[in-house]
């Protein structure tokens, strides 16, 4: 007979999905890997080193801050590793290592753990770290991009100060060929191969880790706006739009940063509003702003609006009718 004391009593449901936070984060790491490989091909082992330092320091800071706060150790959920990888992807491959460690501290200690750890951060940790680094070390962050494939040539340390976005904006210098835009352009180490990012994004959508709404609406909005601007201002609107879509951190941002669970709405309508907002802000910054790149700031600004978007887009439960607002001119007379 059965020993009743060994039976588990728990609330239904008694079966659960096999997916865990760790599996989701592992999927994100897998999705980011093609871009890392592309980056190593373009910029050499320096890319790999920056990524390794970033991941290692993020995981270490996560471990230490949880320890300091006397809370359960969470490095096993791999979220710190994801933050580390995304942070590295937002840095130039030439960046000094100590800056990477500094950025990781900002991301994990300040943005993530000080606000309560996973799921509680109000902005994307990697993004805010990037912005802090950008304003702190503009030279290292914004003016020394390694030239693709230079590490294999006679001038391994060749740097350029012009990313395609800078050229698009100022009109000075020559843009790379469109094919190079897809596979190999100058820029942060993770954003340089649009094809690899797209591959990773599609993987995440197939695995249902992310919904297609945010990337689709974000990239779509940028595409539409750039096309309109192109028709008004440029000779070849389509070419201009193509360059804009493939430039900078748009692909990285749309697939991997704007889709961050903690800092994007959960309702579909909310996701649309959020992503369109990101797209509009990106275009405004890129076209009319002071800076070349607008993806980081636009996602950051929309991150801050997420609680409000969520509140405005709570879906109507099944069978609950839309509340009819009483019209003033047809005031019902209350029977007295």
């Amino acid at each position: 007979m059965v020993d009743n004391k060994l039976l588990t009593a728990s609330a239904s449901p008694h079966v659960r999905t096999r997916d865990t936070t760790r599996i989701i984060m592992l999927d994100v790491l897998i999705a980011l890997t093609p871009s890392l490989i592309a980056s190593v091909i373009l910029f050499g082992l320096r890319s790999l080193a920056v990524t390794a330092v970033s991941i290692a320091s993020c995981v270490l800071f996560e471990y230490l801050s949880r320890k300091a706060m006397r809370r359960a150790n969470t490095i096993g959920d791999l979220s710190a590793a994801v933050t580390g990888m995304i942070l590295a992807f937002n840095l130039p491959s030439t960046i000094p290592f100590w800056m990477v460690v500094f950025g990781a501290a900002i991301a994990i200690i300040v943005v993530k753990q000080m606000f309560g750890g996973i799921g509680q951060n109000f902005v994307n940790p990697a993004l805010l770290a990037r912005i802090v680094l950008m304003v702190s070390f503009p030279k290292a962050m914004l003016a020394s991009w390694a030239t693709p494939f230079a590490w294999r040539s006679d001038t391994p340390d060749a740097v350029t100060s012009a990313t395609p976005l800078a050229i698009l904006k100022t009109g000075e210098g020559t843009l790379p060929a469109l094919l190079n835009m897809c596979f190999a352009k100058a820029g942060c180490l993770g954003e340089v191969c649009a094809a690899a990012l797209l591959l990773g994004g599609v993987y995440l959508m197939i695995r249902r880790v992310i919904s297609p709404i945010i990337p689709f609406c974000y990239i779509g909005t940028v595409g539409m706006c750039m096309l309109l601007y192109g028709f008004a201002q440029k000779e070849n609107a389509f070419l201009f739009t193509a360059y804009e879509l493939l430039s900078g951190g748009l692909m990285l941002g749309a697939f991997f940063m704007a889709t961050d669970y903690a800092t994007s709405p959960i309702s579909s309508r909310g996701k649309v509003i959020f992503a369109v907002g990101c797209g509009l802000l990106t275009c405004l910054i890129r076209l009319f702003g002071n800076m070349n790149e607008g993806v980081s700031f636009s996602i950051l600004l929309m991150n801050i609006l997420v609680p409000h978007i969520e509140r405005l887009t709570v879906p109507r439960p099944f069978g609950v009718e839309k509340e009819k607002k009483p019209r003033k001119d047809k005031k019902e007379v209350q029977p007295s």
Binding site: T8, S10, H14, V15, R16, T20, T21, I24, T74, D77, S79, G117, I118, G119, Q120, Y261, A262, I266, S267, E310, V314, P315, R316, P317, F318, G319
Partner: peptide
Amino acid sequence: EDGLKKETDCINCGRCASACPMNLQASV
């Protein structure tokens, strides 16, 4: 083997909301 799953922090993935046939946001 079919035991309970360990409870960890909500990551705000929204899967509870997409799974709900009554269109509720369980995490909220």
